[in-house]
Design a protein around this nucleic acid. Sequence first.
DNA 1: CAAAATCGATAGTAATACTATTAAATTTGC
DNA 2: GCAAATTTAATAGTATTACTATCGATTTTG
Lengths: 228, 228
Amino acid sequence: MQKLLSNLKITINENIFLKDPESSDLGKRIVENSILLIDEIGFDDFTFKKLGAKIGSNESSLYRYFENKHNLLVYLASWYWSWTEYQLVFAINNIADPLKKLDLAIEVLTKTTTLDSTFKHIDEVVLKRIIIHEYSKSYLTKQVDLDNDEGYFSIYKRLVIRLKELIQEANKDYKYAFCLANTVIEGSLHQQYLKDHFKSISGLKPNEAPTEFYKDLVFNTLNISPNE
Amino acid sequence: MQKLLSNLKITINENIFLKDPESSDLGKRIVENSILLIDEIGFDDFTFKKLGAKIGSNESSLYRYFENKHNLLVYLASWYWSWTEYQLVFAINNIADPLKKLDLAIEVLTKTTTLDSTFKHIDEVVLKRIIIHEYSKSYLTKQVDLDNDEGYFSIYKRLVIRLKELIQEANKDYKYAFCLANTVIEGSLHQQYLKDHFKSISGLKPNEAPTEFYKDLVFNTLNISPNE
DNA sequence: CAAAATCGATAGTAATACTATTAAATTTGC
DNA sequence: GCAAATTTAATAGTATTACTATCGATTTTG
């Protein structure tokens, strides 16, 4: 993966930031350390003032990159989903069998994240943890429809559409491809949250990913088998 | 439903409130109007000061019922899940066939909510909307493990366990009963959110509930049919 | 009818989520 | 290599939030 994507730059909708954080050293430090700080203290207690203190910069400087902490979260989420989309596209590249493609897609979307050294200033394992804990907060807001109009969630939606199409390719007659695609993508985050904080109702063991559950779910629902 | 549950009182874990809101007129007005106000302005912008103004009471009085707005949200959510649990229990009462029971359970857990006149000070339709929009925020916090220890989510967990048992009764060999139970309960809220705010990736029509999707999903996954 | 509980009003605090200004430092364009 | 433009840090300031504390007035209850 590292080799294949070595000259990849994740492109984020320009509406989300005021100044591209990839364009300067300070911007990269903002992204790098916001991931660590949000992971540490949670998004609700996270402030630009605290982040400024952590990176030895000033609160007001951070506001030149992002309008507010909400947009920073949307940025981090977009980055994560874009990165995931690349992994998915590369995983199924050159594979013809629709069932095998779907199988690999579920694998990418539900597996436990490991470090990708392509991006030196982003720790993907910590970022994934933030996505599991905080992603919902990026859209469960009163301005969600306005944010949506600005294209804040377009990468995520594109990913759902990709999975929906893979599902439809695997079974042309299935009626709920969009519902199922959303179930896998969002549900996978939820299952991983439960594993950490609601052990008594989680069906997963401490280091288990929900991959097998979702493969079983999808292939039984579609009435097909990936090993035919 | 109204008749069957007419002398039902929803019981909420006493750790969640400082003073039982059911024990006074002010308490009931707090619950009734917090539902309406959260629906109107969203949980993030909701404050006890605004609620006090709405019900002609004082901010400081509200703090005598709930430690903070987070606990009020946990209270409302517990009320909702408890009410849902009663509906589930009554729906499957006296039914012997495990498949029929599971079918009815999915129906209760995924259908669109309609008004229940049993509780005059609670609008269940608006409450359901709040649950769809804000429930995740009640557990996606840094104190989730402490809250969990206090029993804040025990009603919700009990409901998941009930569904898990119904799934297991319907198919003793199925390996992922907990994962599937969580998929139906939490996923159903998410599907309904998408229907309202992410139309382009939602598989549901404006007034459609995800009930048929989940019945198809569960029965195909378990390799059984509810009409045998 | 007295004691206890409840409620409303007021005041106060530390923190949040910003905005504005200005001056110093750095980058860039020629 | 220097002037101009840009970026950043520092400071100050504002309205709001999320509470806590106190103190009468009112209501409830035993």
